[in-house]
Design a protein around this nucleic acid. Structure first.
Lengths: 125, 125
DNA sequence: CGGTGTGGTTTCCGATCGGATACCAACTAC
DNA sequence: GTAGTTGGTATCCGATCGGAAACCACACCG
């Protein structure tokens, strides 16, 4: 099976937060990362995405499904079980996403410096 | 100098419109592409970005400036001349952007198919 | 003098976003 | 029966987005 998701997998000061490149909506990139190593259940996804509401998670997942990046499967178990998994198309996104993460890490300090410089100008002006 | 920008450089049905990956806000990616081959003036940028309002262009350019991706220069000519140019940081984005464009082109049909399939389900349901 | 071009800013407004909260059906466990 | 879990929906609401339109300072042109 699948190791549990690390509740802290998304560091609040993750360099990617500064990155000008985004996947889908606010949550889509993180959801895709959560599915990288296998299917996940709805409530399982909510753990690393700590502040997400059910509404926001549903909306984001539906968009990913509509775009063919994620597949939703309802299992007929005794207890209700719905799993979300990356499609091959969704999985193919991981490679460019890795390139973007690498870019963000490489240029994190430049991005921080630029923000701080403009904040100083703002404060001075 | 710099060849004029092609007014049609952004095909309304460009595959990148379907891409789930975005650079900055709605316009930032296109602006960066416009600056790829050298600095451009404000009104020059408005040509390929046909429907953009001055307000939207200003806002997007200010954000790019704040993030250190674009530099704004006011030239002291007789006529007012303001030019926007990519910084080295902004230029470094071109490489991952190319990777994304390649991904979007490679998977355009899959993306289209997924959208159409979900639209059919929507219509049938 | 008025008209034109440049590089914007301001105001208004409808649409969308995103969080909080409450609610729900189905099923299980006690 | 009652409580808890799962996978959501429905409603409200303030904040933000994004376009349309009007306006503006400044310089040049004739």
């Amino acid at each position: 099976m699948n190791a549990p998701l690390n509740p802290d997998m998304f560091d609040p000061v993750c360099p990617s937060a500064l990155s000008p490149i985004h996947i889908g909506d606010k949550w889509a990139g993180m959801i895709i990362r959560c599915l990288e190593h296998g299917p996940r259940r709805f409530s399982e996804l909510r753990i690393p995405l700590r502040s997400i509401t059910a509404k926001a998670l549903t909306k984001s997942l539906r968009a990913l499904e509509r775009d063919g990046l994620v597949q939703r499967t309802t299992h007929s178990d005794r207890v209700r079980r719905v799993e979300y998994d990356l499609t091959p198309l969704g999985r193919s996104l991981l490679e460019p996403m890795d390139a973007l993460c690498a870019w963000a890490q490489d240029h994190w300090e430049e991005l921080l410096d630029a923000r701080e410089a403009s904040a100083r100008l703002q404060h001075a002006g």
